[in-house]
Amino acid sequence: MPAGHGVEAATQDPAGISGWLDHPPRMGFFTDTSVCIGCKACEVACKEWNQVPEDGLNLTGMSFDNTAGLGADTWRHVAFIERAETDSDAGFRWLMSSDVCKHCTEAACLDVCPTGAIFRTEFGTVVVQEDVCNGCGYCVPACPYGVLDKREGDGRIFKCTLCYDRLSDGQEPACAKACPTDSIQFGPLDELRERAQGKLDQLVEAGHPGAQLYGADPGDGVGGAGAFFLLLDEPEVYGLPPDPVVTTRHLGEMWRSAGLAAAALGAGIIGAFVGSRR
């Protein structure tokens, strides 16, 4: 049905194809986890700015991560990984990484949202409009990264807005602004991608074998993320899917199967009745 998908994958102008005729450059995040100090300022700054409710005291035992994951009340989540390579001389490493909505070029949550509550902004970001969302919940399992969730007692779905309100006033997102070490870098996506590649090259040259960009490739399963990362280990170690593909890439195929099935249903019933006509 939506034939445009293949084309859309190729375009890196999601705002343009979403009806923003004269729009600013696509803005996004490059989260460079190699300089993250795990301070969680991003978590707090986000909560303060967006007045996100506190979500309970829970000592998880997962290193210093007592937040556990993204959800309705956590739009930035700092993961902590204690990696001991006891068998080698490589020693011990403590990885920290601040996760956030990826603001996918092809965003499943946006595609599936039936109300238009989720929309692509002029900055190319993906935002849930809290005045529209009716809590149908469809976006939740659509997201391949586990970003969105329903807020208890509210019923609506929340996630990072990439500080749409601040961007509208030419301001930097709260989390990026707070970040003490610039692990979270905000800016026009092309610039960020270029900068990230430079940093990766630098790390590879210095012999960091695990270093990799995550979500920076427009050719990936979501058409590249608007918020991408430099990781020091495989994505799944950080709780990220290694090779997610936006579900709506297969929508045509699904509708075709459904069409066939629907036809078969009609045919089957007709067959059952017609063949038995007395």
Binding site: P2, G4, P14, A15, I17, S18, G19, W20, L21, L110, D111, G116, A117, I118, F119, R120, T121, E122, V127, Q129, D131, V132, C163, Y164, D165, R166, S168, D169, Q171
Partner: peptide
């Protein structure tokens, strides 16, 4: 221009007037 209603067409009045 937003035929699939994933962008400008879907923006609510509130979103269009959002300020920091």
């Amino acid at each position: 221009p937003d035929r699939t209603a994933r962008g400008s067409a879907a923006a609510s009045a509130r979103s269009r007037s959002l300020r920091a």
